[in-house]
């Protein structure tokens, strides 16, 4: 569980370049959520999630973040424990690969947690298999030789091998082709059975609509609200006031309604829309 209370954050305070990224943010993310965070570039999404594993320190008198029983506004935080608990996958995570073999790279996280070689290796091998790569074939290869999609899986494995309870993903499918996107999203669903809480930042409304059970909308550093996907995407007024664009499915549903075909506007997937049209046809 993550609880964000009255969180504010200012970049470069007291300089001519000062810039407030977050204003009095309040959020509650429950265990088991697939929590979406959306908002245009510069809305403060990345700044917000970087608080969740204390990459960004909470500024003085700027609120609190509580992860399970850990208060991150405290002076001393057990960083090791926190970072084992909250796994963070950045945009283009393949850019963080560094070791000479895939196995060593994936073992980096577990070893930093203080595990011995054997245990770290076991975890790494399990994680590599979990992300859908053939461990025997790939473990001893250099990560730099792999294809783009494989690299991203290896990077994901590097975080999963730490056995996080909360996984934060920043645009996990950016830059991938449609097939690659689907594969990564399937993979995330598979991971979710071990790591119950998933938080995902995305610009891809189709993915958000399809996978998330709760969605926080950020705009200029403020939380416009937390909604269920049907609440948010079913209401044009809400979407407009939050500055969110329509998922393609919603866009089609809206267009059909305008032409007098009564389909439910809160459909979230292609199949749902298909069923709705079928119903409308009768």
């Amino acid at each position: 569980m993550i609880e964000v209370k009255n969180l504010s954050f200012v970049y470069s305070p007291k300089t001519p370049f000062t810039n407030q990224a977050l204003f009095d943010v309040n959020l509650r993310i429950e265990t088991g959520d697939f929590f979406g965070i959306i908002g245009s570039t510069g809305a403060g999404k990345s700044t917000l999630v970087s608080h969740f594993n204390a990459l960004t320190k909470i500024q003085k008198n700027s609120g609190a973040v509580i992860v399970d029983d850990m208060d991150l506004s405290a002076k001393k935080i057990d960083l090791k424990k926190l970072r084992a608990k909250v796994g963070m996958v950045f945009q283009y995570p393949e850019h963080q690969l560094f070791a000479d073999t895939v196995l060593k790279d994936v073992m980096f996280g577990p070893k930093n947690l203080g595990l011995n070689n054997a245990e770290a290796e076991k975890r790494a091998r399990d994680a590599i298999e979990l992300v859908g790569l053939d461990c025997k074939e790939i473990a001893e290869r250099s990560p730099f030789e792999l294809s783009g999609g494989q690299k991203r899986r290896v990077a994901l494995a590097g975080v999963i091998a730490m056995h996080p309870e909360i996984l934060v993903l920043d645009e996990p499918t950016a830059g991938l082709d449609p097939k690659g996107k689907r594969e990564i999203m399937d993979l995330i669903l598979r991971i979710k059975s071990d790591c119950p809480t998933v938080i995902m930042i995305s610009h891809n409304m189709d993915e958000i609509a399809e996978y998330c059970n709760k969605i926080a909308v950020l705009k200029y550093g403020r939380v416009m609200g937390v909604f269920s996907p049907r609440e948010l995407f079913g209401s044009e007024e809400l979407l407009e006031s939050c500055g969110v664009e329509l998922p393609l499915v919603t866009e089609l549903a809206v267009k059909l309604n305008a032409l007098g075909i009564a389909v439910d506007k809160s459909v979230l997937t292609e199949s749902e829309l298909f069923e709705e049209i079928k119903k409308a046809v009768g």
Binding site: K255, L256, L259, I261, I277, V281
Partner: peptide, 23 residues
């Protein structure tokens, strides 16, 4: 339901509307 092959989102909506109303 014959909607043909629409090439834009608007064409799709039109085609569906026509097909539904025809039905």
């Amino acid at each position: 339901l014959d909607v043909g092959c629409p090439l834009t989102a608007d064409e799709f909506a039109d085609a569906v509307a026509k097909a539904v109303k025809g039905g």
